[in-house]
Design a protein around this nucleic acid. Sequence first.
DNA 1: CTAAAAATGAGTAACGCACCTCAGATGCTT
DNA 2: AAGCATCTGAGGTGCGTTACTCATTTTTAG
Lengths: 345, 345
Amino acid sequence: MRRVTIHDVADKAGVSLATVDRVLNGRPGVRKVTIERVQAAVRDLNYEPDAFAAGLAKKRNYRLHFLIPNGPNAFMEDLSREARDFASTLMRERVSVHIEPIDAFDAHRVTGTLAVLDKSVCDGVAVVAPSFPEVRAAIDRLQDRGVHVVTLVSDHPASTRRHFVGIDNVAAGRVAGRLLGRFLPKEPAKIAFIAGSLGLRDHADRYAGCTQVLDNEFPHLELLKVREGRDDNGKNHDIALKLLKEHPDLAGLYNIGAGNRGLIAAIEETRRGAGLTFIGHELTPYTRTALQNGTMDALIAQDPGHEVRSAIRVLKALCDGAPIVEGQERIGIDIFLKDNLPDLA
Amino acid sequence: MRRVTIHDVADKAGVSLATVDRVLNGRPGVRKVTIERVQAAVRDLNYEPDAFAAGLAKKRNYRLHFLIPNGPNAFMEDLSREARDFASTLMRERVSVHIEPIDAFDAHRVTGTLAVLDKSVCDGVAVVAPSFPEVRAAIDRLQDRGVHVVTLVSDHPASTRRHFVGIDNVAAGRVAGRLLGRFLPKEPAKIAFIAGSLGLRDHADRYAGCTQVLDNEFPHLELLKVREGRDDNGKNHDIALKLLKEHPDLAGLYNIGAGNRGLIAAIEETRRGAGLTFIGHELTPYTRTALQNGTMDALIAQDPGHEVRSAIRVLKALCDGAPIVEGQERIGIDIFLKDNLPDLA
DNA sequence: CTAAAAATGAGTAACGCACCTCAGATGCTT
DNA sequence: AAGCATCTGAGGTGCGTTACTCATTTTTAG
């Protein structure tokens, strides 16, 4: 059960090592018939290159940059932490991760950060950024310069980015809609929506998915117009208080974006938890507690750890031209009820 | 930004390469003070061994065996397929996976299969098997022989297995309970349960979790006694027909085990889909369709692909004494509604 | 048919580490 | 201070591949 090496392939094909190497690494200077002969030998012998030897000989190393929004956002902090943690276990595999905090709302600065990157500095970039056209253009230019780019959490479908690591936000919104519809009694009731901004692609997608399901399958529910709170806890707190006052009979609440903390506080202050079905996004210490004590009823989440590891795997695969294991890289929508919260790490 | 190598460590510690090697690989013949000096240098320089070079030099290879129940079970077939698929991409990393079909209900044969395994044949084993004491004992003996063992899907907590790859079935049951409780109107109603066998640990766990939530938080619901269908579609079909006849007002149904196909058929034949909230486990072509057309209301699943890849990563880590990334190996409970079904691969 | 161009063979130096040997140095005991 | 055990240094080899160079053979064009 010895490993099959290029020597065996060379023997089988009746050529020299050098020729096998030329074929395997796509170097020029080999006749078509010879190429085919070598490839046939590879197939026959079921040859697989040895990743250890190849990595060693290639002196390969993977310099990855992660551009992640800063600011007091628990989810983004988790992303950064997971990236750092996973990177440390991957040092010995020659993966180095540099985390660059960015201001997600300042498209100009983000563009500038992308503009200075270059093949001489890094091999792959994962970026979390809002979908401004200039950012898309910067991504495209970066790829032209030979740096692989994946979008993280929030996609830029129009760009040439090689992969998107994140959840399907339309589906996430649909899930929220169905849970609201099914959790509430089958009778007329009001539902309120709070978003960071419908200008953000993921928020808009979630809203669209949610209203689609509610309009079609739960037409007895009245949907109030969306309030935008810029993902800010203070703003959301005020919005919620006003909302609860204006609509004493409010039955459902869907927070499309971040800033759950402000909403939770408002609901608990007014002791409206029992009568209100409240669904939000992302697992944080605050939402966890709210789910446990009944203030929140369901949480739709994405696992930042999974996303970071997926992004790194994908970028690595892109760097050495390896195929991407699709099933492995599909990020699922996590639905948390108080019953299936993961243990705290 | 050159890589730090053992040469650098040797220089820094003022010793030779041989000594560094002795320390790093735990070989004898080094004074305690020297060991400490080398370790200090390692820390100072932040030295990390190069996985490529180490793997190459060690001629390491990972021979893994997967023992997976055969029989007409879509989930187990998925497991096997995923194992094969992932293994093929890992050949170049010197991971070879052998899949051994077993008869999960024949503990004696399973024990026999485990008994002949040995360090000379394989380095790690992942086993899906019911929790009979003899199987547990066989696992322990196998580990004593130096072969790492992880349990897959169904755990043997009492054994010395190094890791369990699978979901928390009690939590899964609780989720089923809460979804039933919240999907149904807040008024008295009957709920039926079908299991493969409460003798199977995972089924018993799910049942316990589900009734715990229903009893405590939804006391208005009446829980009928569990029917056991041995995970057989034919048996389940008959059970369902009888159940629907005996209880024309049945409001909820939870299939704890496999054999959803039989239940789906029975419900669709009797046109009882609309009035019945039906929750089951595992995503298969049948349950997918049932969810889409409304026969089923929710699906609680575990991703066989994730589980296989996790098992392989864990076994690999155990083989070379590397730490396990806990967060990465936690298998989440997937909750599928008709809104978040993954695209077909 | 010949000269130029293209294809191939043969060989070699890395890559970083594991593992081995053997000689020499150092410490410790009497 | 000799004798012994214990440490340590120097050096070599092998792992499978990459990425060269240089010489040689084959093919192609004129």
